[in-house]
Design a binder for these strands. Structure first.
Length: 820
RNA sequence: GCCGGAGUGGUGAAAUUGGUAGACACGUCGGAUUCAAAAUCCGAUGCCCUUAAAAGCGUGCCGGUUCGAGUCCGGCCUCCGGUACCA
């Protein structure tokens, strides 16, 4: 009876106690605390840190499990692994929560961090918690403020006017997210665009490097590199001037100077000085400018808005022909792009064509197709390159030839020149919000903008504030903003804008390396750990965050703080977690709380399902039934191991030979190693171990050879799964009699001798359709394979009435008989 | 609008370099075990026709290249991510 109970206890998989035990072991051994060691190869594995929104969601679980699997795999390969964790703790949601729950943002954030840290610990992630960074703490943002003053002194940070969404009623700036259908989300009044002074960092100075260095990023997905290239948007074109009566030269940029002879009007942005000035004496134009100023400033809204325009009354002189063309204001021309003015060639640009068609402006053809393409300018613009017509001296030239000839003519007359332009704009880092790092600048009437001296840093954000959401509290706190000028000692005011939260997330990966240093932003350890070997995060960060972080790394390099060019060697962009085909959200009511699943199944089951349900880069459809299945597999593995240890396994009905199972075993090691390392497809790695287990249970363990293969198989399966289900494997490894810590155990190696086969199965096709299967020796000749294929009964049936034309033999795979 | 993806059984998916479509699971059905249930184990399971076998059809839609296409090319459709102040 006692024996019976003992066996039942062992055979029963108890996740909760196993997980507690393993986590206590890692804690007591300080297993995951990373120390620089120049003698060992390092591996820095990083998942994008979370915004502390309240509790973990499934996207976090997936993100952090993927990174943890990679970190644990690399540890077993013998690397010195660093895997840190921290909090992207500034941002808008804390302000919203503050209004809703009447809690100050700092307190709300701190509470969330405490709760979420516990959840991460419960999931068994192998983090070095001694390096935790929290971006809303002064010991973090002081270095960001210090670095900004360095950039300011180098001339890389500057102030200029830029547009924001403005709500007149609430007297406040709105984020794009806070504008719903062109209206304020809180008071529902229409939003307008307004220009205010803002701080910018000159990312455009680094545009060329950021573009060129994409070529170094061998470990990045091609799609992300393409998106970044397109975002930077390098183009070669011509900058030229139209002379405008009563205004002077008006500069425009075009990538199609070959179409210059087809210009029938010029369009400027509503904010353009020319338009603003013209409106002063033209009330109708002034009303129009006001009416187009109330669109949301998001690009998607501007691009899809109905095209609207009005003539300014000015005319521009064509720089080559001297022809006079009208100057219009158009809502699709943006002041922040290029010079805020464009030349319009409605014959060969679709947007210009639509505008011209709507307002009855001339459309002229100056490019003719080289082939037979349709070119009906009454239906659409012809945007393909071709041969010039109606272009005077340039008639007959190709677009490429005309590009050069026209550029040369403009250059000769001093009205234009070839130039390279980038779509990328400078990075606006000012936010008119409370919950962010204060911008360390003092505005003095005499001295202008002056950076806060290093000895006075950090500029600490007051956290004991009343927060009502209408304007930032520090803008109403003289005790915060009243100060003296560091230059002249006279009365001055602090900047009350705070930094864009992308600032904090642009360098946190580096700070982890020197997290506890309170004397410097970064130290020599940064160059030991950096660059990050593996970065894991959502595809939604493919452009902004990853571009800003790449930019910041180059700024850190040029300040002498790091010695590499790029921050992230290899990047894995994980897909979203869906439920019923839609993104999980509170409003749809389709959320799944990871905590409830951890409580009922354990962390290992949640980790296993997250990794099994889909490859990391695809979206993952959540399924409660699938979680159940993952749990069942763990129970099965557990029982299989204990039945082996106790010698209580039943004899299988159709046993497999030890040799065949051992070959499968070593094939599995090879496949899983490739899946973890090169392919990063953890779902197929798990499937391969499941297949192995399905074969292992069919070993007859009353036979010593098979029993030995079973033992080898279990020790391998447990190590192969250890990165994914570390608690269970920690426990089983000990139960199998091993004294070592599996987290640092060596990864299993493939025994090449075990992989050798005598025979392989080939498929026989007739005209590409499978008609038979046959087994041949591995070294069978092409001729013997052809003969054997033709002799198959079902093949004979299909070639009886036709002539065999050709036989294709694909070694190790198939034979295709072509007949007709 | 623009840029980047995705679409395969009832479901999640696999097929790695153009070579057996559906591995591995979930679900369903049938069986074993049980007084019974849960749990567990065994078997079947793309669709269609069929007692069965064989054949036929089948990777969002239309067309192309090839001995051979889920995979490559051209043209669509739908959904998703980003679009510079959500993070």
């Amino acid at each position: 009876m006692a024996h019976h109970r003992k066996k039942r206890d062992n055979v029963q998989y108890q996740a909760a106690s196993i997980e507690q035990e393993a986590q206590a072991f890692w804690e007591s051994q300080a297993s995951f605390i990373a120390k620089p060691d120049p003698k060992r190869e390092k591996f820095y594995c990083l998942a994008m840190f979370p915004y502390p929104s309240g509790k973990l969601h499934m996207g976090h679980v997936r993100n952090y499990t993927i990174a943890d699997v990679i970190a644990r795999f690399q540890r077993m390969l013998g690397k010195n692994v660093l895997q840190p964790m921290g909090w992207d703790a500034f941002g808008l949601p804390a302000e919203n929560a503050a209004i809703k729950n009447n809690v100050p943002p700092a307190a709300w954030t701190a509470e969330n961090i405490d709760y979420m840290r516990d959840q991460l610990k419960r999931l068994g992630f192998a983090y070095d918690w001694t390096r935790e960074v929290t971006t809303c703490e002064p010991d973090y943002y002081r270095w960001e403020q210090w670095f900004f003053t360095r950039l300011f002194e180098k001339g890389l940070a500057y102030k200029k006017q830029a547009e924001v969404n403005w709500c007149e009623t609430d007297n406040t700036v709105l984020a794009n997210e806070q504008v719903v259908d062109g209206c304020c989300w809180r008071c529902d009044n229409p939003v307008e665009r307004r220009n205010i002074d803002q701080w910018f960092i000159k990312i455009t100075d680094y545009a060329e490097q950021l573009l060129n260095d994409i070529n170094q990023l061998d470990g990045w997905p091609e799609q992300v590199k393409t998106m970044q290239r397109n975002w930077i948007g390098r183009s070669e074109g011509v900058e030229l001037q139209f002379d405008v009566d009563g205004h002077g030269p008006l500069s425009v940029y075009t990538t199609r100077p070959d179409t210059l002879m087809g210009v029938t009007y010029v369009a400027v942005a509503g904010q353009h000085p020319l338009a603003q000035k013209a409106a002063e004496s033209n009330p109708e134009l002034k009303a129009f400018l006001n009416s187009i100023a109330n669109t949301k400033m998001a690009e998607a809204d501007l691009a899809t808005a109905e095209k609207l325009g009005m003539a300014t009354g000015h005319t521009a002189i064509h720089p080559i022909t001297g022809r006079e063309v009208p100057v219009w204001v158009a809502n699709f021309v943006l002041m922040s792009y290029g010079s805020g003015a464009v030349m319009a060639v409605p014959g060969h640009d679709q947007r210009d064509w639509e505008f011209a068609t709507k307002y009855g402006l001339d459309i002229e053809q100056v490019i003719q197709s080289c082939s037979d393409d349709d070119c009906d300018l009454s239906k659409a613009a012809y945007t393909t390159k071709g041969t010039l017509v109606n272009s005077g001296d340039y008639n007959g030239l190709s677009s490429a030839e005309a590009f050069e000839a026209i550029a040369a003519a403009l250059e000769a007359s001093g009205t234009g020149h070839k130039t390279v332009q980038y779509r990328l704009r400078d990075w606006g880092v000012s936010r008119q919000r409370y919950w962010g790092a204060p911008i360390p600048i003092i505005n003095c009437e005499k001295c202008g903008a002056v950076s806060v001296p290093e000895k006075d840093l950090p500029v600490v954000l007051p956290t004991d504030v009343e927060f009502d959401g209408v304007g930032s509290p520090i803008k109403k706190m003289p005790e915060f903003y009243t100060t003296t000028c560091p230059c002249c000692g006279g009365p001055a005011e602090r900047e009350t804008d705070t930094f864009d939260t992308f600032m904090e997330s642009s360098w946190y990966y580096a700070r982890y390396a020197s997290a506890t240093n309170d004397q410097a932003m970064l130290d020599k350890d940064a160059n030991y750990w950096l660059p990050v070997d593996q970065y894991v995060g959502g595809i939604e960060h493919a452009i902004l965050h990853l571009l800003y972080a790449r930019f910041f790394h180059k700024l850190l390099r040029d300040e002498g703080l790091v010695n590499s060019d790029e921050p992230f060697k290899r990047l894995l962009t994980q897909g979203m977690v869906l439920k019923d085909g839609a993104k999980m959200s509170k409003s749809k009511g389709n959320t799944v709380d990871p905590q409830a699943l951890i409580d009922s199944y354990g962390a290992d089951t949640v980790r296993l399902f997250s990794m099994f349900a889909a490859p990391p880069e695809q979206s993952l459809e959540w399924s409660d039934a699938g979680v159940d299945g993952a749990h069942r597999f763990l129970k099965r593995l557990w029982r299989m191991a204990f039945e082996h240890i106790e010698g209580s396994a039943d004899t299988p009905e159709k046993p497999l030979t030890a040799k065949d199972v051992r070959r499968k075993l070593h094939e599995t090691i090879a496949k899983v190693t490739d899946d973890y390392g090169r392919r990063q497809t953890f779902n197929t790695a798990i499937a391969a171990v499941m297949e192995l287990c399905n074969e292992l249970v069919r070993l007859d363990q009353s036979n010593a050879t098979s029993r030995e293969v079973m033992r080898e198989g279990l020790s391998v399966a447990v190590r192969l799964l250890a990165p994914i289900v570390p608690h269970l494997c920690h426990s089983l490894w000990q139960a199998l009699g091993y004294k070592s810590d599996i987290a640092n155990e060596a990864w299993p190696e493939v025994d090449q001798a075990a992989l050798i086969r005598d025979e392989i199965e080939l498929v026989v096709q007739v005209n590409g359709k499978v008609r038979a299967k046959m087994s041949v020796g591995v070294d069978a000749s092409k001729e013997s394979i052809e003969q054997l294929a033709l002799a198959q009964d079902n093949v004979q049936k299909f070639i009886a009435d036709v002539t065999v034309r050709k036989i294709i033999v694909v070694p190790g795979r198939l034979v295709n008989i072509v007949a007709n």
